[in-house]
Design a protein around this nucleic acid. Structure first.
Lengths: 262, 262
DNA sequence: CAGTGGTCTAGACCACTGC
DNA sequence: CAGTGGTCTAGACCACTGT
């Protein structure tokens, strides 16, 4: 954590066409990229930057908001502006729904997180019957009602993912799938026990900026996008038996897939 | 395009704890979500908003910058602030590298874009020998030198993707792979002709905010993240024969994958 | 308490757009 | 040209943090 601002940051170029706040942002960004400010370090305070560059406070704040938008820094009221720490990422492999992973007693999320040395939690579990949205209904082949299972996943106390599973009500009603805890192996294991032999999953992936609601639910810092994943599970008769709509904090995930070359 | 600001936007709540600029942003966001401002519509000018809400211009600009960060609006100097149009998306399916797609004469990108009714272009093609970065070298099994093939893809004149392929130099040197145009079916077809029968691909996906350089290259609007995809191609002997590092404008892509349930 | 960032004002001048 | 957004100033008061 460099203490002398002038030891890290240079001067402005008054002959440059580049706006002053951009020049300041450039210098701070470069200092971060080159490791002169490291993860978690506090940047010089706004007052220090105002004095160092001889500009007004709004200009300095404008620079900092540029870096916030890029996801490079986070500000903490009353404390300072800090280089954004990179959280541990969760790697999702393409075999994560392989049948062998459904045999074990614990939920996949829990097993995997503990193996990675993190403390997993699942909260705000909610199970209820609903009328599906147009999109979900289409993906499921048009059921009138569905069972919706909502839950939020956390790692070491930090929310990383919010997911909603939709199952046609005629499949789920009166089965363990409609219980808050569906039992070992999760709802996929239960679906198979009910005779819906799973054949494959389709996943659709998008990335975008979060809505205000998603920012609250996932406690997202400024400049962190979300990955929006929609998975559809098909049984061996080609029927869609579940759609899972998932929003993930993009800085907490790496998705990986294996594609055949055939 | 509503003409009367007061017909669309309400009043501030002076008793609310919520900051004024957030209240204004909330009202504009709601108006957009509800379709009272549609894609491409011009929002009321800053001057109109200043008069409507009775606040200073900086407060209004602060509201608008919130919406920009969310990717909801784009500002155009001298023209106004507009609801961001949703570009046509390019869907990438998990069979896009299937062998049957490599038989045809045209590049996959071209064929697929024309089928979707878009005008495809590839530019800034650059082929040269390089020393690989640590990460690329590791993925390729540690070659000292690689052939790097850089290119940018555009749809209807809009840049959507920037990609760099790295091939171990001992594989590529003196072959059509080292030519600007590697011929029908692309470098994967050439690799197979050279005896490297492709077995599978691994893809790693991340999402994040773009660097200033990526904003320029892809001409990204504010509030548009990028999808960072790193694909490794393996031959039937398990050797990594290519790594492709791709940065995509997130608003132009939907990736889709099929996972086996086995 | 002093130091930090968060909000807001009321101006100013500039650069770009379209008529 | 008038209207738009882009940049910048020099203040003010507030809320949150740590000691």
């Amino acid at each position: 954590m460099p203490s002398q601002t002038s030891a890290v940051l240079g001067a402005l170029d008054p002959t440059s066409d580049r706006a002053v706040f951009r020049q300041i942002a450039d210098q701070l960004r470069e200092a971060i990229d080159k490791g002169r400010f490291k993860e978690g370090d506090k940047l010089p305070s706004e007052t220090e930057l105002v004095e160092h560059y001889g500009v007004s406070r709004m200009t300095v704040r404008n620079s900092l908001s540029v870096l916030q938008g890029e996801g490079l820094v986070v500000s903490e009221h009353g404390k300072g502006v800090f280089v954004r720490p990179r959280p541990p990422v969760r790697r999702l492999a393409s075999d994560r729904f392989a049948r062998r992973h459904r045999q074990q007693g614990k939920a996949a999320f829990t097993v995997e997180a503990e193996a990675a040395g993190s403390r997993p939690e699942v909260d705000s579990l909610e199970v209820k019957e609903e009328r599906p949205s147009q999109d979900i209904a289409t993906r499921l082949g048009g059921p009138r009602k569905v069972l919706a299972r909502r839950r939020r996943y956390l790692l070491d106390g930090r929310p990383v993912e919010f997911a909603v599973s939709y199952i046609p009500l005629d499949l789920a009603s009166g089965t363990p799938i409609a219980e808050p805890n569906p039992g070992p192996g999760g709802i996929y294991a239960r679906l198979e026990e009910l005779g819906h032999h799973l054949d494959h999953f389709d996943e659709e992936i998008r990335a975008r900026m979060p809505s205000p609601q998603e920012i609250r639910t996932l406690r997202l810092a400024a400049g962190v996008p979300v990955i929006h994943l929609i998975r559809t599970a098909y049984d061996s008769e080609g029927r869609a038996v579940e759609v899972c709509d998932t929003v993930m904090a993009a800085d907490a995930y790496v998705l990986s897939y294996q594609l055949p070359a055939t």
